[in-house]
Each structure stands twice: as C-alpha cells, then as structure tokens.
C-alpha cells in the first residue's frame, strides 16, 4: 500500500471505520460456534452498513435535511437519499434478527445446545436413527 492510499483512507476515516467494523462482524460470524454470538456478529455487520450509508450522504458543513426558514437551496442541506436507505436497512435487520433468534430458541428446545457443531452432529445421528 503506498502513501496515497493510506492518506485517502485517513481522509475518509468514517468509511474506513465502517469497513473494519464490517470485517469484525464477519469474523465473529465465521469463528464463533455459538449461534447467539453469530447473530451478534450479523448485527455488527448491519450496523457497519448503516454507518457507511450515513457517511456517504454527509457533506461537510451542511445541515440536516429539514427545511428551516424556507431555505431550499441545495447548498444548505446534506443528501437525504442515504438517510432513507438506512431506515429501510434498520427495519429489515430488526425483522431478520427476531426471526434468527426465534429459530435459535427452537433449535435449543430440540437439541439442548447452542453449539452449531453439536447441533449438526445430533441432527445427522437423528436422521440415521430413523
């Protein structure tokens, strides 16, 4: 990596932070065998995406897109489109998190374990038993 790239990354530090957060969430998703921790990793990835979108719409020195005193100049407000997209993302992630947690509860009720490896082995043995 040359100096230019690092300088660029430091200038858009919020985007860099969101990418690293996304990576942390992805690592948790891969490395942890506990299903609840996997869901937490998924949520961290969601949050990183919101941060990235919100930062993409931000313009330095401009106000939130709520019209004050009838000023309707493009130069006065930040980009409102990514804010709307973040809203969509939040709602979908709430629904998917609830669905994943419900599925985890059902798996725990059946196999009395949250460990994904154990659940897979028990499910396979059960299949062979039948």
């Amino acid at each position: 990596m040359n100096v230019n790239v690092i300088q660029h990354l430091l200038l858009s530090i919020e985007e860099t932070a969101s990418i690293i957060l996304f990576g942390i969430g992805f690592t948790i998703l891969l490395l942890h065998r506990n299903l609840v921790k996997k869901i937490m990793g998924m949520n961290i990835m969601d949050t990183a995406t919101y941060l990235f979108l919100a930062v993409k719409g931000y313009i330095t020195g401009r106000a939130v897109p709520i019209v004050v005193d009838g000023v309707q100049d493009v130069e006065a407000y930040i980009n409102p489109v990514p804010s709307g997209l973040v809203l969509t993302g939040i709602v979908v992630s709430v629904s998917t998190t609830a669905l994943m947690l419900a599925l985890t509860i059902r798996l725990y009720e059946r196999y009395h374990s949250l460990d994904l490896d154990e659940i897979l082995i028990l499910a396979k043995e059960e299949e062979e038993h039948i």
């Binding site: 985007e15 993409k56 313009i59 980009n79």
Partner: peptide, 25 residues
C-alpha cells in the same frame, strides 16, 4: 475499494446528484 471512492463530505461527489437536488428544491 474505499480508497478508490471519492473522499467523504465532498459536495462534488457523484452521489450528490440531481435526484437529491430535486428532493431538496
């Protein structure tokens, strides 16, 4: 990829296009 994207907070970024301008105006 982020290093190839335009710098954050710049008003001339391509995502601040005529759609956003129309919504504001």
């Amino acid at each position: 990829t982020v290093a190839a994207l335009p710098i954050t907070g710049n008003a001339d970024n391509p995502d601040n296009n005529e759609v956003a301008a129309r919504y504001i105006e």
